[in-house]
Structures are given as C-alpha cells and as structure tokens.
C-alpha cells in the first residue's frame, strides 16, 4: 500500500479531474475548475507530506528516477514526460480559443447614496417601502396592494422575469445577462427593498460602471411607473417568489430575544 503512494495520488488526482470535468452538468466554468483542481492538488501533496513515512514512500519512485535506480525505460519515460506535460499545459493556456472576452460584472453593485426619482432626491440609506411600513398591521390592505402589484408585474415585468418569477420569461434568453431570478435565494431575498427600488427606478442605465450598464436590459421604470406602482410591484415580487426582504430591524429584534 505504502509503496504505491505516488501512484494512488496520481490516480486520485485524475479521478477528481474527471469527476469535476464530466460529472458536473452544466459544465463548470474553467475558472472554477482551475480553483478546484489547484486546491485538490495542494490537498493531495500536503496529505502525502503530512506523515514522514508516507512522504518518503511518495517521493521514492521519483527519487529512483532521478538517482538513476529505476529501469532505464522508466527513467526515460518520466524524464521526457514531465517537460512534455509542462509544454502541453503551456499550450493549453496559449492556444487561441477566440472565446468572447470575459466581461466581469458585479452582480449586486453598490447603490449610490442618493438618486433621482422624478426629480426628487432619494436617500438610499433611509429609504423604506412606505406601503409595507404603513400597512404592517393591516394584512388585508397589504394583500390588496400586493394584488395590485401583481397586475403591474404581469403588465410590465413578466416578459423577462417570468410567469413564475424565475427569470425565465419569454424574452429572457435574448438578453445577456439574463434577467434576475427572484426565486433564487441569492437575489432579492438577500437585499433590502430600498435596493430593489433603486434598481427598478433607475434600470440598466442607472448601474455603476462595474456592473456593465450598457448590457442590462432593465428599463428605467421611473419613466413608466409611479413611485406607488413600483413599491406595489416590489411587494408582489417578494410575495410571489415566496421570499421576504432583508430587514435589519427584524434581525436585531431576533437577537435581543
């Protein structure tokens, strides 16, 4: 067993590579594969080196080759193989693929501290959904407003964000980046309503540079909807996707109990 440490390590490495490359569907991006393989490589080498006897067994075949104790054919194979592998690796990196240049995009950009809404200066930090705040104690009224928000949603938003709010409306696949999936735990449920209001009101052109405003198909909704309508639609997208907005007050309360 111990004699084969190096071979086991190599097999394991190859198995991980194969598993990640072919076992994950849809295929993982090269950047992630690279991270995973780097970590796996480090883990395997560290594990081999974490025990003196194991480490010596791990090195032994390599030593045998470099010190000339291995059969000549094996020596030749290894000594020729390593530079070839290195060259191949380099070729993989330099070979032209002509893939579209990677356009990094910040998914949740920071909102500006203030923004314009119909000429009003809105302070993002103190912004709260006035409808939710006013009718917190009156679920029937809130439900009514949410229903109105539903109508607004299906007359304005569902083309892209989908019937089931999953970001898969019938126009969705023509746009890149694809529209936000409100059912994803990583989207609106991570954000405060003020953030959503900012995104809806100022749309794609309101994004900061790092979020590639020239690509976003999100319209500037303040040109089409009133403040009330946007807040109602926000009520609906949370209710409809079964998520709740992030609020700080609630957490603080939660912790004090």
């Amino acid at each position: 067993m111990r004699r084969h440490t190096l071979y086991i390590a190599i097999m394991l490495w190859l198995a991980i590579l194969a598993g990640l490359k072919f076992g994950v569907r849809p295929p993982m991006p090269a950047s992630v594969l690279m991270i995973y393989m780097t970590l796996s490589t480090i883990a395997i080498i560290l594990f081999a080196a974490a025990d003196e006897a194991r480490f010596q067994a791990f090195l032994a075949p390599l030593r045998a080759v470099f010190e000339g104790r291995a059969p000549k054919a094996v020596q030749l194979l290894v000594l020729a193989g390593i530079p070839l592998l290195a060259g191949w690796g380099a070729w993989l990196r330099t070979a032209p693929s002509w893939d579209a240049p990677f356009e990094p995009r910040v998914v949740h950009p920071e909102p500006p501290s203030t923004f314009n809404f119909h000429g009003k200066r809105i302070d993002t930090a103190s912004l709260k959904n006035p409808l939710r705040a006013a009718h917190e104690k009156d679920p029937a009224q809130l439900e009514k407003l949410t229903a109105e928000g539903k109508t607004i949603y299906y007359q304005n938003c569902f083309f892209c964000h989908g019937d089931a709010l999953a970001g898969d409306g019938h126009f969705a696949n023509a746009f890149s980046p694809i529209p936000a999936n409100f059912r994803d735990v990583g989207t609106i449920s991570m954000l405060q309503e003020s953030f959503v209001f900012w995104r809806v009101s100022t749309g794609g052109p309101g994004l900061p540079r790092a979020a590639t405003p020239w690509l976003s198909a999100m319209p500037v909704w303040q040109n089409f909807l009133t403040e009330d309508e946007i807040w109602k639609a926000i009520l609906y997208i949370y209710a409809g996707s079964g998520s709740t907005p992030r609020t700080w007050d609630e957490e603080t309360k939660h912790e004090k109990h």
Binding site: I82, G87, A90, W91, T94
Partner: peptide, 17 residues
Amino acid sequence: TVVLWPLGIGFLTLGGE
C-alpha cells in the same frame, strides 16, 4: 507565440530536470 511558449516552458522544465 502559441508555439514558442510551450516549447520554451518544455525546455525550461527539461533544464530544471
């Protein structure tokens, strides 16, 4: 360069060996 890089790195590794 697509050819030169792999060659260079291959030879460098060989030298190291």
